[in-house]
Amino acid sequence: MTDEELVAALAQHQEAALSALIDQYGDFIRQVVWHYLQGEYLRGYTLDIENRSYYQIWQKIDLYDADKGTFKSWLGTVVKNQTLDYIKGLAGIKQDVAMPTTLNTAAEEEPTEPDWATLFRPLNDQERAIFQLYFVDGQFPAEIAKQLHIKPATVYKNLSRGRLKIQKEALKHGNLYQSLY
């Protein structure tokens, strides 16, 4: 497919054009993304950035003007901007791709664990130990019960009671859940 045919097919939103675009320019798009994504961690977001780039191309193909440059250089610019915006973070991404503002999006740095110590502050010692094992370490209630020498039913009871305590504390002070979002 020539560039003219490809652009015309993309403008008509033909699925075959998407396949042709990936066929003809998939490697080029990845090269552009990786040129700007330095480091192993950031390259973990390659697929997401590529998908966003294809979405932009799909949505904004009408903006391509053949008089101003080749299709390849237009693609390069779109992908470069997507990658740089992604790296810049949430604000850039929302603005450029009209991402729903309510959705979480990848940040520049590796996500850190929530502040569990603050969240678990309202709990007593036993509840805190159970919450740590269940929510942070990902253990099963049966395993927790064995480890703490209590009944599995007590583990479930503590999980329900403890979450209510956290909610009550959050209602009082309103700052417990902030560490999570």
């Binding site: 929510f135 479930y156 999980l159 329900s160 979450r163 956290i166 909610q167 999570l180």
Partner: peptide
């Protein structure tokens, strides 16, 4: 499961929901 568990803990409106086996 891990995501559901985390939501049970971190979404304030889910705090009253009892977890059972």
């Amino acid at each position: 499961g891990l995501l559901f568990k985390r939501n049970l803990l971190t979404i304030p409106a889910m705090a009253h929901v009892q977890i059972t086996d």
